[in-house]
C-alpha cells in the first residue's frame, strides 16, 4: 500500500509538472492587465490611505489638547 501510494504520488507530481507546459506563466493578472495601469491606481490609493491614517492621528492628538482645557 505504501509503495502504491508513493508511486501514485510520484505520477501525480509528473502530471503536475506537465500541466505547467503550454500555459502562460505570468500571474497576478488583475494588476498586470491594461498596461499595468492598476499599479498606478494602487500607488495612489496607498498614498491616500497613508495620508488619511496620518490625519486621524493628528485629529486624535488635537482632540486631546482641546479636552485638557
Amino acid at each position: 500500500m505504501k509503495k502504491l501510494s508513493l508511486v501514485l504520488l510520484l505520477v501525480l507530481c509528473c502530471t503536475a509538472v506537465f500541466a505547467q507546459q503550454g500555459q502562460q506563466v505570468e500571474m497576478a493578472d488583475a494588476l498586470r492587465s491594461s498596461g499595468k495601469i492598476y499599479v498606478v491606481v494602487a500607488t495612489i490609493s496607498i498614498i491616500f490611505t497613508g495620508l488619511a491614517i496620518f490625519l486621524f492621528t493628528i485629529d486624535r492628538r488635537l482632540k486631546k489638547v482641546e479636552n485638557q482645557k
Partner: peptide, 21 residues
C-alpha cells in the same frame, strides 16, 4: 493619468508612478 507617456517595455503604464511615487 491622461497625458501621453513614453511606451517602454516592462514598465508600461507604471511609468506614471513618476508623478506619485
Amino acid at each position: 493619468l491622461v497625458f501621453k507617456a513614453p511606451r517602454l517595455p516592462i514598465i508600461h503604464e507604471t511609468i506614471r508612478n513618476l508623478y506619485f511615487h
